[in-house]
Each structure stands twice: as structure tokens, then as C-alpha cells.
Design a protein around this nucleic acid. Structure first.
Lengths: 146, 146
DNA sequence: GTTAATGGTTAACATGGTTATCGATGACGA
DNA sequence: TCGTCATCGATAACCATGTTAACCATTAAC
């Protein structure tokens, strides 16, 4: 019993890795050519849009990257007028970054555009299949966060 | 009706994008620290292991990258003794690349290691949930390939 | 057989990650 | 209160990996 469960879990894992990695790659490609912003810049902008103002250190941790990488990206976004950097009033060392209205606008537009391809693909499925994916999506999220 | 279907498809797409991208990221991190090989090198090696000998141009197309990038990665893998490059006997311009036994070994070991984390996570789910993911995985694959 | 097309490499450059170092600010014990 | 230490962020120098442009060798075509 154990060995059979193990075997099928391995096979399931292989299948899932393949399909998830592949779909992710596809989704990533969908917003490559986006408004002149790089992948990184969009990712950071999206993060800020979702979470509100953040310090450089927090952003680094959330993006799983070292602080200098964030500094560079923030600098680029700042020059484009998409984020704004200000000193933390309580702690002069911290630099707080927040998205500007224009930045937020771009993120939302990009998200719509990115989803378009997937929405179309999903439209080709049966309602039952979509329902299945909806339930699976919750599980995937749980796996990713665990 | 249409508008309701459309709305839920949009929501489904958003949820799926989030969960798929996140899980993919997590899976990718799992084999970062792998034997001194970079992400790229492992990816190319995996491709070659799965598909047999390929020309540089084919590899570039499969990896969605320009030929010079392949040339560089192949050169590195060749120096490590993980791939072998030879001239196509029918067309002296083409360079055919194939994985060596040692390269193949590394790919398989890496795959096992990468799957380990996911297998463990899947083990925490109920059988019904695993079954659901198995069916969803097939759909994801189809979406990615369409 | 000369010319054009094709496959791959090389060179020069851009982007984005890293570590090491430093300046400025905040925290804390003598 | 002051001197020391820790922490945050920025800068510099380096590496990995993508790009385009130019070039070489080989094949194809007239």
C-alpha cells in the first residue's frame, strides 16, 4: 500500500512539475512585451500595488533577492514616475517605496492583458473542467505557500 | 449568462495565474543549489536528455532564445563533460549536441531531488485531493500546449 | 563556378543578480 | 550623555546570461 501510494505520488509530482512549469513559462511570455517595462519592474510594481508602501528591505525579502537588486529596480521605476521613494519619518535609515497612481494604472492594465490569453484558453474548456481547475487552483496555492 | 461566464472565467484566470506562478517559482527555487550547474545549464541538459541529439538552432528555438546564448551554454556543458558536440555528417554547417551518460545521470538525480519536495507536500493532502490534482494536471498541460 | 543563403561562432553591449564596503541613522550600556 | 555597535540602504565591482551585428564556413541555386 505504502509503496503504491508513494509511486503514484511520485508520478503525480512529475506530471505536476511538468505542467505547472510549462504553463508558468507560457504565462510569463505573455507579458514580455509590456510597455517597455522589464519583468522585474512589473513584478515589483505589482507587489507594491497589492501590498501598499514597503521598505527596501521588505521588498528584498518578499522578492527573495538581495537589497541592492531592489535599489536598482526602484531607481529605474522612480525615474519613470511609477513609484515614489521617501524617508521613513520614524527611522531615517529606512526608505519607504510606494506606487504612484500612474504605476498602479500600468499594473492593472498589464494584469488584464496578461489574463486575456488564459481567459481565452479557459473559454475553450467545458464548465466541468473549469470547475475542476477552480478547485485545483486553491490546492496549488496551498502547496506553494506551505 | 455570457457576462456571468465571462466574469467567472476572469476570476478563475486570475486565481490560476497566481497559484501557478507561485508554485512554479517555488519549484524552481528547489533546484537552485544543484551541483554547481546553473539554471540554464540544467534546463538545456534536461531538454537534451528528453529529446536526444539536437542542433544548436533547434535548441535555440526550443528554449526560445537566440543561437549565441545556446552556443555559450553548450560550451560550458561541454567543458564539464556533460554534453558532446559533433559535426552533422550530412551538413557541415550544423553542430549536433548530445548529452553524455554523465550528463544524463545528473539530470535524473536532479529531477529526483526536485520532485522530493513536491512529493512530500502531496503526501500531506487527502487521496481525493491528489486525485483532483492529477486530473487538473492534464488540463494544465493542455492549456500550456495550446 | 560564382553568388546567395544558412548555421554557428565571436564580439560588444545591456540587464539584473551577487558580495563587499561604506555612510548615515538608531539603539544601548558605561 | 556619549561612545560603540547594529542596521538600513546605496555604491562599486563582478558574474551570468540575454541581445544584436559582423564574420566564417558550408551548402544551395542559378
Amino acid at each position: 500500500m505504502t509503496s503504491q501510494t508513494e509511486t503514484s505520488s511520485t508520478e503525480l509530482a512529475q506530471g505536476m512539475r511538468r505542467s505547472v512549469m510549462r504553463l508558468a513559462r507560457r504565462l510569463r511570455q505573455m507579458h514580455e512585451e509590456s510597455l517597455g517595462l522589464t519583468q522585474n519592474q512589473l513584478s515589483l510594481l505589482g507587489l507594491l500595488t497589492g501590498s501598499g508602501p514597503r521598505s527596501v528591505g521588505e521588498l528584498a525579502e518578499l522578492e527573495k533577492v538581495q537589497p541592492p537588486a531592489i535599489t536598482r529596480t526602484v531607481k529605474a521605476l522612480e525615474q519613470l514616475g511609477l513609484v515614489q521613494r521617501s524617508a521613513d519619518p520614524d527611522d531615517g535609515r529606512r526608505a519607504v517605496v510606494e506606487v504612484t497612481p500612474r504605476g498602479r494604472e500600468i499594473v492593472l492594465a498589464d494584469r488584464r492583458r496578461r489574463d486575456l490569453w488564459l481567459v481565452e484558453r479557459l473559454g475553450e474548456l467545458t464548465p466541468a473542467e473549469r470547475e475542476l481547475l477552480g478547485r485545483a487552483s486553491v490546492l496549488l496555492q496551498r502547496l506553494a505557500d506551505s
